[in-house]
Computed example of a mutant assay.
Amino acid sequence: MRDFHVHSNYSDGEFLRSMVRAAESAGLEGVGVADHCNVATREHHASMRSVYGFNLDLTYERRRRGIDRLREEFDLAIYDAVEMDYDLRDEAAIETFLAEAGFDYAIGSVHDIGGRNVQVSSNFSAMSEAERDAVVDDYFDQLVALVESELFEIAAHVDLLERTPPLRGRATDDHYRRVAQAFAESRTIPEINAGRALSDAGIVHPSDRLLSLLREYDVAVTVGTDSHQPTEIPNRVDFLAEFVAETGLEPVSPDGLER
């Protein structure tokens, strides 16, 4: 069992050593530290970089030295990864950064539509039904563009909208089929993400509807706990192990890593 999606203090998680120690204690064979990064220069994203520290483009070399030290100390594979915020307008900047940084793998994710974080309900509560549907359309346009860009080994929480009550349940089978088709034609693979699986919401990404279509299109999947705290890792690892056993899934490693 390997967890390809945890965060550390190099973005919005806990100390790097604490996260790796928790991964080892949970019995993992490997853990991927994939801190957030945003390379957009627009005002909203510049604010996110400043407030939340989503600036791994400035700190990845220092984090890499820390990972190298931990590799000597801990008996598990530790992957040097990144979770990039994706926007079609930023493709050139993302491609340049990833080529320069040389991570073990890169995760792509869509968090914002029109400058609004899709996980914040208040951003959409005053919208009309038609406006909310337009946000959902835009989200899946961006997600498909992410997959088609071939910039990333993994796509994170590919139906993130389900976390947000004003947007939940608005995705259609046409949206999901379009995403599944894009994955079937790409090297990018979606993850089974447990970031909200043990919360009150009980949400697993992807949803049953989308997961069914991914299986119909014979799309491989990987796994990630999306943990930000050491205490989150053990329970989420156990959940994922049970989930893949019950569903009969056989998760794979990202391209270029040992299977």
Rank of each mutant, 00 (worst) to 15 (best):
I113S: 03
L98G: 08
A99I: 08
A40Y: 03
I107W: 05
M127H: 14
H44Y: 11
S128K: 11
S128A: 14
S122M: 12
A101C: 08
N55W: 02
V110Y: 03
M84T: 03
S122P: 05
M48H: 08
D90R: 05
S50R: 15
D57R: 09
A46E: 14
R64E: 06
D68G: 01
A126F: 13
A93N: 10
Y79C: 01
G114F: 10
M48N: 12
L88E: 14
R62P: 00
R71G: 02
V118G: 07
S122L: 10
R116M: 12
G115F: 07
L76W: 00
R49H: 03
D90Y: 08
S109H: 10
D75W: 02
V118N: 05
Y105P: 01
V51N: 12
R62C: 02
D112F: 15
G108R: 05
G102T: 10
E95M: 09
F97R: 09
Y86P: 04
R132Q: 13
F97H: 15
R132I: 08
E61N: 05
E43H: 12
E100S: 14
S109T: 11
R63V: 00
A101Y: 04
A92M: 09
G115C: 09
G114C: 07
I67Y: 01
G115M: 08
H44R: 13
V82H: 04
R89L: 12
G102D: 08
A77E: 12
D85Y: 11
L70Y: 01
V82K: 04
Q119R: 13
N55A: 12
V120Y: 09
